[in-house]
Every structure is written in C-alpha cells, then in structure tokens.
Design a protein around this nucleic acid. Structure first.
Lengths: 232, 232
DNA sequence: ATTCGTCAAGAGCAGTGCTCTCGAATCCTG
DNA sequence: CAGGATTCGAGAGCACTGCTCTTGACGAAT
C-alpha cells in the first residue's frame, strides 16, 4: 500500500491528475464560470458522465482547484521568503508582496477564485482553510522573527486598539507569537492592504487611473511596512 | 417628449423597471451566476424571449444592475458624508467607511459584482465607469477640504514616493486638488485598505479569525486615517 | 381603414450539471 | 484458477440555461 497498489488505483490517480490539469487550463483561460465538466471530458475523449466517477460534482472539482491554488501561491510565498536573508525583515515582507502580486497577475482567474467573490452556490469546504493559511503563516513568521530580534518598532502614531478585539488578537497571535494587540491590528491592516491593492489591480479598478503600477505597488507596500514598524 | 410620450413608451419603461427590480431581487438571493433571464421572465408571467425586447442580452441586464449598484452605493456614501459637520474630516472619513461596509454586508452579491472578481465573459462597458467614481469623489472631497483648511497633517514616517508615479498622481489629483504626491499615495493606500478590509470580511476571509468585526473595522479605519494625517 | 412598427408567444438550437442503467473490464477472494 | 464483487465507460435522458427565429396579434399613425 505504499505509493500505488493496484493498476486500477494507479490509472485512477493519473486520471484525476489529468482531469485537474485540463480543468486548471480551462480555468485560466475561461474563468471559473466557464469551467465545464463536459468540456473537460470532451478534451479527454471521455463522455461527461465518466467524470463523475472521479469528481462527484463540479463544485468538488472547483474545490481541488482552489486547494491547488492556495498551495501554489503558498509555496511561491514560502520560496520567496526563503530566498531572503533571515534578518532582512523588510526585504522578506516586500518579497512576499511581490510574489503575491506577480502570482495574481499571472493567474488572475485563480486569484479571483481564492480572493474574489465566492462562486455562485458554492460553499467553501473545510479542506480549503488549511492550505489557505500557508501564505499568511509565512507573513506571521516574518513578523515574529522581527519581534524576537527586537527589530519591530511601530511608530507611535496610532491609538491603542480597544480591548474588545483581544480575543481575536489571541487567535492571530498564534501566527505571530509575541505580538501586542497593537501590532496584531497593524499586521492585519497591512495584510488586507496588500490584498486590497492586488485585488484593485487584478480586478481592473486601477484602469485609467494608476498606470505605473509596479512602482506604485512597491511604494505603497513600503509604506505599509513602515506603519508596521519594519526596519528598512 | 417630456416625461412620457406615447402609452407604449410608458409601459415599456415600466416593464424595464420591473425587470430590473425582479432581477435585482434574484441577484441578491442567488448571486450573479444564478441570475437567469428565464426565471425573471417566468416571475413576470412572460415567456423568456420577450425579455429580449427590453434587454438585448443577459450581460446588458447585468450591466444595468452594476450601474444601479454603483449609484446606490455612491448615493449612500454621499448621504453619509452630507450628514457630518463639514470640518469633521475624521468623522466624514469614518462615515464613508461605515456606509461602505454596511452596504457591502447588506448587499454582498451586489458588492461582489462591483468589487469582486469580474463575471465570466463579461467586459465592463463604458457606462459603468462614471457611476463608479461617485463614491471615490466624495472621498476626494473630504481630503481636499481638509487640505484646504490646512488640517491634513500626515505623520512624517514614510519615504517620499518615487517621481515615476507623478503622472498617475496627477490623475488622482483631479479628485483631491492640492494634494502632494505623498498625500496621493497615502490616500490610495487608505482607500484600497478600506476595500481590502471590506472584501476580506464579505468574502469570508475573516471566518474563524476576526469575530469582533465591527470594532476591528472601526479601529483599523481610524489607523488608516491617522496614516493619512486626518485630525481626530 | 389600412399600413406599419412593436410586441408576446412558441419552437428550436446548442450548451450545461447531473442521474440512471447497462454491459464490460478489473480486482479480490475462495 | 474460477467466480463473485467492484469499478468503470458509455449512452440515454431530465431539467435547466442563453439566445435566435418565425408567427400571429395588437395598437398607433397615416
């Protein structure tokens, strides 16, 4: 029962892989709503009903694509972070920002699937939340490292967060050990700022407005880092 | 040719109104992908082909819904701003934030249509860009008023933006007269931060993480205002 | 009163997700 | 190795979608 037992299981795993591969290609071309089980089956030389042997519904196929997307982005984030000097906290943050933006621009439909409007009658299953935390876990590690090295110096321009959010901050603190409530809220603000910026760009909110987007992005992410207190 | 010429045009306008009304109700219930021309026609006691007398395609119906959405949100923003003292710049900004968040939570599918992933093969026509600027115009006016009153004092914790983005800043400056490039970038950062936060909440990115969302939102928006330099 | 434009209705096309049944191929067990 | 159990692909079919085209009826202008 190591990698593959029977021949049937081998071909089954291979078929599942091939289906998701074709589906991902259709997704990147036509978007989530254009993903058709019948079209995938047609391309595989199968009949549509045969697909249902491998994916009980279209939503399940979509779910694995979402999971794959989170993993792909998460892995890219991990690699970008790993390529930086451990004590270059600002560089690590900017690397994460750039790889998120780059991945989103390279795979806009997949990005939309992860961070855009949820698809129609689709309910996000439990399987998606674990891989979804992969990217933000890296982010938390960067901040935790900076805190541990006493290099995080957030500028004292903000009011203290209300005590109401302490329980929520506790949840986030599992990702950023040692962070105060103030740092937690700054961290979430910067994180949502990153994705807000990327979403605005990917979803076309910047058309006819911001054209030097790479430079603009670079600068605004640096600003968010400053708000966070990351050392330059 | 004043309000209504012939009886035929009257009933035609009324039918268009009724179709969009039913379509909007279907939209808020089932989402954009669940919006079906046939279902709308069925509810009106019409046959599906009759709808095409009034909307040449499903995308055109969607476009008017998008335009209506931008106008509804824009009008809400305008009203919220108008209800504040003109020199309470922080209050006006927070009012805008709250009304955006409230409207998004009350109409998640419509919000997704405006600020989420663009629908499948749908290309945003020109008609949508004008109403889309209604909300951000209010935002620009708030900042412009604060600048004119010399009450905008952004904390000097950020690096100067690169000169590359000056042409883009010029474009935004038509909305915020008198703003420096630095203020412009801060303003865009705060604006995307607002929508990033709202999108994360509406699209379910905060589930199992941030639960005291109203308080959290209030605080983070205050932080963004501080970054902007709005007086408390 | 007749002509002309507008309209609702219906049939129809091509496509979708999904279910069911039916042989055939494959696997596991005796 | 043989037989029963599982799994699988194929096909038909249901209910639904957006959209097109034709047909016949109604109302308004000439």
């Amino acid at each position: 029962m190591s990698a593959s037992r029977t021949a049937r299981e081998r071909v089954r795993a291979e078929l599942i892989r091939e289906i998701t591969e074709i589906a991902r290609r259709h997704l990147t071309v036509d978007g989530a709503a254009g993903l058709s089980l019948r079209a995938v089956a047609r391309e595989m030389g199968m009949v549509s009903s045969a697909i249902y042997r491998y994916f009980p519904s279209r939503d399940d196929l979509l779910t694995t694509l979402i999971v794959d997307g989170y993993n792909a982005l998460g892995e890219a984030v991990e690699k970008a972070d790993a390529a930086c000097a451990r004590d270059d906290y600002m560089g690590r943050w900017l690397a994460v920002c750039h790889v998120v933006r780059g991945w989103a621009l390279a795979h806009p439909h997949e990005y939309a699937l992860l961070y855009g409007s949820p698809v129609p009658g689709y309910r996000a299953p439990e399987d998606t939340i674990a891989p979804a935390t992969r990217g933000v876990a890296v982010y938390g590690r960067i901040l935790a490292d900076a805190i541990a090295a006493e290099r995080l110096a957030p500028p004292a321009i903000l009011p203290e967060p209300p005590a109401t959010i302490t329980p929520d901050a506790d949840t986030v603190r599992t990702l950023i050990p040692g962070a105060s409530d103030d740092v937690i809220t700054r961290a979430v603000t910067a994180w949502t700022g990153l994705f807000g910026m990327v979403s605005f760009e990917v979803f076309g909110q910047f058309t006819n407005t911001i054209n030097h987007r790479a430079e603009f992005f670079e600068h605004t992410m640096t600003c968010l880092a400053r708000l966070l207190g990351l050392p330059s």
